[in-house]
Design a protein around this nucleic acid. Structure first.
Lengths: 114, 114
DNA sequence: TACTAGTAGTTAGTAACACCAAGTAGTTAG
DNA sequence: CTAACTACTTGGTGTTACTAACTACTAGTA
């Protein structure tokens, strides 16, 4: 993946994962494949697991260990109240940034056509 | 500023500054006030200067030192060919990410209304 | 004169985060 | 018994925005 994407994911990947967990608990491996399905094909596995440890330590998710039919036990993560709050905050921050950048994009187009 | 915004700016702030430089050269102090005007009220001055040094070293901008009427000399930055290329790449990366996150936002809304 | 505020840029150190590489461990198919 | 898939862990790296302090020049004011 480009270096730009790597840097851009900082701060957004956490929100993306929290969003994926809305309404549906999931475990790490599952989340990784979900991300790949959504087009984030190059996100490193280790990155996802590290992120999950982090949001667990921040108290944004509840964790339950469940046996798997085909492999080691899974750690199933579900969004809790604090996580939902954090996600809302994420959407606010993201919207703010996205709006301003969209504005810049438009302005650049105008300049480019002059 | 929130910690979320700080992390989110990683990887996007550079693109934002390159976008600001499209069609119009500017110096550091000016860029900082431009950013503040655009709503990024809490971006630290030091951050902008450090970023400018970085994009100069990456060869994305040309620099010209000009005396100022009211203070120390200014370093005026203008986007060069490589910078324009990098900016295009930025828009591609950003669009990709923004689209996917927008999709997630919609999905979350639907889930939330169930 | 000395002091403040505004302008303009620099430097050193910190924290957060995504990355890579390598490893452990369980199951299933050849 | 070996490979491939599932599932998670650990240790170390590079990039980036942050803070805080500093230099330096000008203009206005007490």
């Amino acid at each position: 993946m480009g270096k730009q994407m790597t840097e851009m994911l900082k701060g957004t990947l956490e929100g993306i994962v929290l969003a994926l967990l809305t309404g549906k608990a999931a475990y790490g491996y599952e989340i990784t494949t979900l991300l790949r399905d959504q087009g984030f094909t190059d996100i490193a596995e280790g990155t996802v697991y590290a992120l999950l440890v982090r949001i667990e330590q921040k108290g944004l998710v509840d964790v339950e260990k469940r046996p798997s039919e085909k492999g080691p036990p899974r750690k199933v993560y579900s969004l809790n109240g604090q996580g939902r709050q954090e996600l809302e905050e994420f959407w606010r921050t993201w919207s703010f940034l996205a709006e301003r950048i969209a504005q810049l994009h438009i302005t650049d187009h105008i300049k480019g056509e002059k």
